[in-house]
């Protein structure tokens, strides 16, 4: 499986964020997106999800445009944005259950409970998420990663609001996903230690371009 981006240009309002952007991402590869604030990182991620329409260029999944693949592409995609996308009035378990069901698969409550325990929410599964701390809310959102079947993860600043232990946990989760043949794109300054996969780096803004693989 490949994600191929050709000559991408995005415009927000009357400001060009980037243009002529090309890169490819294979299985077992992790793409780290770098760039100053306002360089268009979030817009690029949203464009890759198909939420934002690019001005020019193509985004291909296995050689087919993602607009054409539509729901087949979204089947393979897991996006986590700035918002946690959880409901404050629902419990951690209910949130995770609805999010995975809408993602198109049903791992069962046991697997969901295990995922919540693994992400460090043991004992908090049945609290309305309103009562949890910022970091715990983020963990509820991140628990999806543990039960996900999607190949391509697109994570926008996933480490925000997490404590040291959770950062390490998330690093391991992403690394395990990529090493097991997944793909991930993230905007962050945190390094993710991979064992077999490769890290690619892409810089937006000044000196735009794919940097040498680390």
């Amino acid at each position: 499986m490949t994600l191929q981006v050709n000559n991408l240009q995005c415009i927000r309002g009357d400001r060009e964020l980037f243009s002529g952007l090309s890169f490819a991402l294979q299985q077992k590869q992790l793409l780290m997106l770098e760039g100053a604030n306002g360089s268009g990182k979030t817009t690029l991620l949203r464009t890759l999800c198909g939420l934002y329409l690019q001005e020019q260029g193509d985004i291909l999944w296995d050689g087919v445009s993602i607009r054409k693949l539509d729901d087949q592409y979204r089947q393979e995609l897991l996006y986590l944005g700035h918002y946690n996308a959880i409901k404050m009035d629902l419990t951690a378990l209910e949130n995770l259950r609805i999010n995975t069901l809408l993602g198109g698969y049903n791992p069962g409550d046991n697997a969901l409970m295990q995922a919540l325990d693994a992400i460090g929410l043991f004992g908090f599964e049945d609290y309305p998420t309103r009562q949890l701390s910022q970091g715990q809310k983020r963990r509820v959102a991140l628990a999806r990663l543990l039960v996900s079947k999607q190949k391509l993860w697109i994570l926008d600043e996933p480490f925000v609001a997490l404590d040291v232990a959770a950062v390490e946990l998330l690093q391991n989760i992403i690394a395990a996903h990529v090493d097991a043949g997944g793909m991930a794109i993230l905007t962050t300054h945190q390094e993710v230690p991979l064992t077999t996969g490769a890290v690619k780096r892409l810089r937006l803004g000044e000196k735009q371009g794919v940097l040498a693989d680390a």
């Binding site: 999800c49 944005g81 996308a85 999010n99 198109g104």
Partner: peptide, 15 residues
């Protein structure tokens, strides 16, 4: 819209 769940609905593989 405010908590981001709408964005996630748009990204699910359903109509």
């Amino acid at each position: 819209f405010e908590d981001g769940t709408l964005e996630q609905l748009l990204l699910t593989p359903h109509s």
